[in-house]
């Protein structure tokens, strides 16, 4: 019930935001609006007019520059350059002496705390608080039945341990448990936070999924045992002369697996956001309130679907990671039945 209210609230805020945007900008353009909403930003807009300006951190050739992103806006909410930097299309560029934006300025790294990063910090704080509390409970009553929040998360932790880690990795599963648990809850929490009103689209951001995928890649490569590398450099059952073709293919396979992880999570979450936003945009495209009930009905349906997808994608990411780790540490001599 509570969640439902939250969802309804989110629709209300979103709709009101669009309404005003449409009124201000004149013609309503769904494409840029949607892209703007799923993209990262330097200010966090909870609802129209309620926004938080996040800090800008720049690493300019060894020099650290920090200031609030509110400096990029003047009183009329127009973009202005500040301290020789300008914000353009969600990026920050160095502005030359003549006021010209330097697109190819070398050595400028943008480490700003953007909306996504701020959202990630919140999710991480939540993760730490929740699981520290749970860990404390386990320490406090050892051997007792779980209670409260502990009993909510315990079946999930046991599921990840038994049905994901043990089933796919085998006897060496314990080494990978911390990563699998962390990545599962990190993705799930952020997926859910992304569905909150005004939430950031963190797990629908390619940079985030890329980092997770690279960690999976690195862990897989460093866990690879003799059998794993043997399969890559001398695939059993394949004639020797095919090696020049097989080795590059297998090496490419190492990369494509985490690459698929990265794209899958990013695309699923982003697509969900785009669909919900598109459904609302229909109201403004048709410029009719009559479409609203239909849009809202579909959007509610999509939101429930997204709640499920949030869990499903976290599960799939964890499951596939476990399978890749399992493939890397698997010990067996028989070549048959394995591809």
């Amino acid at each position: 019930m509570k969640r439902l209210l939250v969802l309804l609230f989110s629709f209300l805020t979103l709709t009101s935001a669009f309404a005003e945007e449409a009124a201000e900008g004149g013609k309503f353009e769904p494409g840029p609006m949607i892209l703007h909403h799923i993209a990262d930003d330097y200010l966090w807009e909870f609802a129209h007019g309620v926004e938080l300006y996040l800090p800008v951190i720049l690493w300019d050739n060894g020099e650290l520059v920090t200031f609030s992103s509110s400096n990029f806006y003047n009183e009329d909410h127009e973009r202005v350059p500040y301290k020789g930097y300008a914000m353009l299309h969600g990026h920050i560029f160095k502005v030359g002496a003549d006021g010209e934006v330097l697109e190819d300025y070398p050595g400028l790294y943008n480490l700003s705390i953007t909306k996504n990063i701020a959202s990630m910090f919140i999710s991480v704080a939540l993760l730490l608080v929740i699981f520290f509390v749970i860990a404390a409970r386990y320490k406090k009553n050892p051997g007792k039945a779980p209670s409260g929040i502990q009993s909510f998360f315990e079946p999930i932790i046991i599921f990840i341990r038994d049905d994901i880690a043990k089933a796919n990795i085998g006897p060496k599963y314990e080494r990978y448990m911390p990563f699998l648990l962390t990545v599962f809850f990190f993705i799930w929490f952020n997926n859910l936070l992304g569905l909150m009103p005004g939430g950031a689209n963190l797990t629908g951001n390619i940079s985030v999924t890329a980092v997770l995928a690279v960690i999976v890649l690195v862990v897989t490569v460093f866990s690879g045992n003799k059998t794993y590398w043997g399969h890559i450099f001398a695939t059993p059952g394949v004639p020797r002369w095919l090696a020049p073709i097989m080795i590059p293919v297998e090496l490419l396979g190492i990369i494509t697996k985490p690459f698929a992880l990265m794209v899958r999570l990013f695309a699923n979450i982003t697509a969900g956001h785009i669909i919900i936003l598109s459904l609302f945009s229909l109201i403004f495209i048709f410029e009719s309130l009559a479409v609203a009930p239909l849009s809202v009905a579909f959007a509610i349906f999509m939101n429930f679907l997204e709640l499920f997808v949030a869990l499903l994608q976290a599960y799939i990411f964890t499951l596939l990671s476990a399978m890749y780790f399992g493939g890397a540490v698997e010990e067996h001599d028989h070549a048959e039945g394995h591809h």
Partner: peptide, 12 residues
């Protein structure tokens, strides 16, 4: 949408 940003990668 599909261009990774250095800041996010770093912080993430």
């Amino acid at each position: 949408l599909v261009t990774p940003s250095i800041g996010l990668i770093f912080w993430q």
